[in-house]
Amino acid sequence: MTPFEEEVKKALSRHEPPAGFADRVLARAREQDRKQAARTGGWLRRLRSWRLVPVLAALMVMTGGIVYQEHEREARGEAAKQQLLLAMRIAGSKLHDAQLVVREVEQ
């Protein structure tokens, strides 16, 4: 390091921050924690509020209704499928009977 650089280094020596700096930082950190806790706590308190009960009940009814409708639609679809399969089995059976009659007539 040259003598001039030594002078620059001396000029740029570290300075202590104003008194109480660390305490102010820690106080702000605690304040940050407190605000964070208040935000979380506030949300939980709102959740527990009685005013939310009707909203939650309405949400549950709506959700239940949607689930029930979906279930009904699936049940109707399943019944229609079973009916179609039965109809096809009956038709197949009738066709088989008809084929047997035709063969007997031909012989």
Binding site: L12, S13, H15, E16, P17, P18, F21, V25, R28, A29
Partner: peptide, 28 residues
């Protein structure tokens, strides 16, 4: 590290309140 952080701010900004505010924000 408070002297290091504050001094970088001080030598760069040449403004004590701004250097302290900067140092506090960095530590937060």
């Amino acid at each position: 590290h408070k002297a290091m952080v504050f001094s970088i701010g001080w030598h760069f900004l040449r403004d004590r309140p701004a250097a302290e505010e900067l140092a506090q924000e960095v530590f937060l």
